[in-house]
Every structure is written in structure tokens, then in C-alpha cells.
Amino acid sequence: MNDEAFRLVPIGVVHSPVADRRLMPPNGVEAEIEIFPDFADGLLRIEENSHLWVLGWFVDADRERLELVRPEYDPARRRRGVFGLRSVARPNPIALTATRLLAVEGLRLRVAPLDFIDGTPIVDLKRYSPSWDCIFSARSSRDRYLIDWDSPERLAEYEREATNFHGELCGWVIIGARIIQHLGLLWKVHPKDEDLRVTVSDDPELTHLADALQALTAATLGNGRLRVTSERKVSFTWRERRWTVAPRPLPDLPLEAFRSLAIERLIDEYS
């Protein structure tokens, strides 16, 4: 084993309203990254980028464990190595997340969302490159083997994925995430299952919803899993099953309300 040590120099620190990792929302919060004066020159023209990769250091991470048991997975696959997870536990506890750059104010970067707690050391920043970093066809173990269909964490993960694709969080994005979560509960099917077919509407009111559903299912015209209709409805087929829903007009409510409303308040279902 090579015992050579690498020297990491913190370039800044996180200022976040959340100081306890257990209280961090799954999608993170708005926060600030303070860059230390010695590294100020590295910020030149950083505002030309809409998103950044942020690399931090998990100070209190368990650096000895290489395997974890994750209860949200299929029982036969719950024991997993940390190199296939996004766990805090790992030999070199490097934290990695992509975030939107909201503003640059001197040596402070205002970003959102960021899931690093207050006081997290920052070891590097890099621009997020859509041409290099966005792999729409990518799949992970979470796309295949998760079974916590109705957990709030799953809805939050769906929301984040759909928001990243669509460009902003809105009511239709949350409704799209709710529809996909409900579909999983109904059929016990993962949204990126290769046998799942999706029909979205080109109705102007439902185009944001179409974005969310395409993001979460990875259905495209090219892979034959996506169809478009002029009718004001969306539908899913999987093997011998079909589920069609007609979204109701978007209510004028705070975004948080879309997560708690009964699904029947948001859509009309048809078999």
C-alpha cells in the first residue's frame, strides 16, 4: 500500500443556516461560501458560470468503514461498498456537490442548493460544464434497486433531478415528482425501467410537467419510450398495464403545499 500523504489546503469555508447534518434537507439550502483572501485571484470571472462543482471536506467522517448497510435498497442488495455510494463515510472524506451560483459579493459566493453544513471546509471549486458533466443516459444502483417508494427522501430526490433538467423548481415539477412516486407505489416499477413507456402532452400549460416526466423516466423519442400527444393528459404503459392521468389546473399555492396535497387534488386518474 502506498502511504504517500497528499496535502490539501482549505480555500474557504461554508456559512449555512444548518449546522447539524441530521437536520439538512435532502435538497440542501441556500448558503454562502467564503473564499479566503489568499485565493481571491481564483475567483476572477467566476460569475460567468451559472453552476459550480463544490468540493468540501467532511471533518467528522468515519474513515475506516468500507461497507455500509442501506435499508432503502432491495434486501439482497443492502450491503454496499462506499465507493458506489454518496455516503459521508469513506477513506478520504471529500464532499462533492453541484450548485447554482446566485451571486458573487467580494469573497463570498451565494449558492443554492448546498447540502454542506455550516463550517464545512472547502477544498476546491470548478465550473459545472453541461457538455462534459451532464450524462442524461446515466443509471445508478438507485435507479434499479431502491424500494422506499413512498419516503419523503425519494420525493426530494425526484424533485431535484427534475429541477436540474427543467431549470427551476415550480409547481409542475413537484407534481411530476408526485406522479412518478405514485406510479412506483401502484406498480412497484422504477421510473427508468426500460419497459416503461411515457406519453406527455404538448399542451402549453403542461410543458413544464412534460420536462419533469422526461427527466425522471429518461424516456426519449430516440429510445422509443417517449410519445407526445396534443390531448391534455399523460399516460404510462408497462408490460400489460396502462395508467392515464389528467392534471388539474395548477392551483395558486405555495410550493410546499404541492408536496402535502392528496394526489387526487392534483390529478384525475383513468385506468
Rank of each mutant, 00 (worst) to 15 (best):
L85D: 02
L85K: 01
A89I: 01
A89R: 00
R90W: 02
I94R: 05
A95M: 01
A98H: 06
T99H: 00
L102Y: 02
L102M: 07
V104S: 10
E105P: 00
L107G: 15
P113I: 10
P113H: 06
D115T: 08
F116I: 05
F116E: 06
I117C: 11
G119S: 12
G119A: 13
T120H: 07
T120E: 10
I122C: 05
V123P: 05
L125K: 14
Y128S: 06
P130N: 09
W132F: 13
A138D: 15
A138T: 10
A138Q: 14
R142E: 13
R142Y: 09
D143E: 11
Y145S: 14
L146V: 07
I147T: 11
D148R: 08
W149M: 08
S151V: 07
R154T: 12
L155K: 04
E157C: 09
E157K: 06
E161I: 06
A162F: 06
T163V: 01
T163L: 02
N164S: 11
H166Y: 06
H166F: 07
G167P: 01
G167A: 04
E168I: 04
E168D: 12
C170K: 07
W172R: 14
V173S: 08
V173L: 12
I175P: 02
I175C: 09
A177E: 01
